[in-house]
């Protein structure tokens, strides 16, 4: 059995609580990220990602406290992102117990931050997240959660991020995100063939077969999704059984 493909639920956090409606399992408090994370871990999630979408300074402090609670309770690796501007933010989150951090806009604005993180903490903690949209056969990277276009092109930027010391690339296709028609397979495959570091596919999952496509055609190392998990549309145990039947290497519980 080769290295397993990873399934990663992503949780949006605002002021220390989960944002999107969650109804996949009976929880005492569906807004408590720790309880939700524990439920996902129990179901067989391979990793978790927590994205802080809080805008205020107070909320940021709450997030660090939350990371400490997650680290104390969860027995699988987790990545945190959102609101990371400088090395000090990274250090604060790693000290709180995060296994990896994910940077997006900060990396585009200050690419040297990738190298600083890799030099201080190792490449393995540094996930570079890229939001990109395809227009006229060209993929452009966007800032601030997809609100501000940049001159950076996806494949050039992903390669630069790798050369600067990124340990993984989390690629979200804005064309596919939220549409539930499948992942951006040809772009994923191109990234796979171009890069030596693992690639996490994000944006577009709607069916179990979309995950098979991401791994077989997109050659992704991991697949991240949010709503299909949160709303119970695709329970993780069912997804993993299906992937196994399709011959995808998966960690079974």
């Amino acid at each position: 059995m080769p290295l397993a493909k990873r399934i990663i639920p992503c949780l949006d956090i605002k002021n220390g609580t989960t944002v999107k409606g969650i109804n996949f399992v009976e929880l005492r408090d569906a807004g408590d990220p720790v309880e939700l994370a524990a439920a996902y871990s129990k179901q067989g999630a391979d990793e978790l990602t927590f994205l802080d979408i809080t805008a205020t300074h107070e909320g940021r402090k709450t997030f660090v406290q939350l990371v400490e609670r997650i680290a104390a309770h969860i027995n699988i690796p987790f990545t945190v992102g959102g609101g990371i501007h400088e090395l000090r933010d990274v250090e604060r989150l790693l000290v709180a117990g995060a296994d990896k951090i994910s940077i997006n806009s900060a990396a585009l604005r200050h690419p040297e931050l990738i190298t600083e993180i890799a030099d201080h903490f190792g490449s393995q903690v540094c996930v570079v997240a890229i939001d990109a949209r395809e227009d006229d056969n060209d993929w452009h990277c966007y800032l601030n959660g997809g609100r501000i276009p940049t001159a950076h092109k996806l494949f050039d930027w992903a390669h630069e991020a790798q050369e600067r010391g990124a340990g993984e690339i989390l690629f979200t296709s804005m064309n596919h995100d939220g549409v539930k028609q499948g992942y951006a397979l040809s772009a994923l495959r191109h990234l796979h063939e171009q890069l030596n570091i693992p690639i996490i596919a994000s944006g577009g999952a709607g069916t179990k077969n979309h995950f098979v496509e991401a791994f077989e055609q997109g050659m992704a190392d991991a697949a991240l999704a949010a709503s299909v998990f949160h709303f119970g549309e695709i329970p993780i145990p069912e997804l993993k059984s299906y992937l196994c039947e399709q011959g995808i290497p998966i960690r079974k519980l």
């Binding site: 080769p2 990873r6 490449s123 063939e193 890069l195 570091i197 693992p198 690639i199």
Partner: peptide, 11 residues
């Protein structure tokens, strides 16, 4: 590129 470095994940 089928074998990414680091070896990262569940094996």
């Amino acid at each position: 590129t089928d074998f990414k470095i680091p070896h990262m994940g569940w094996n």
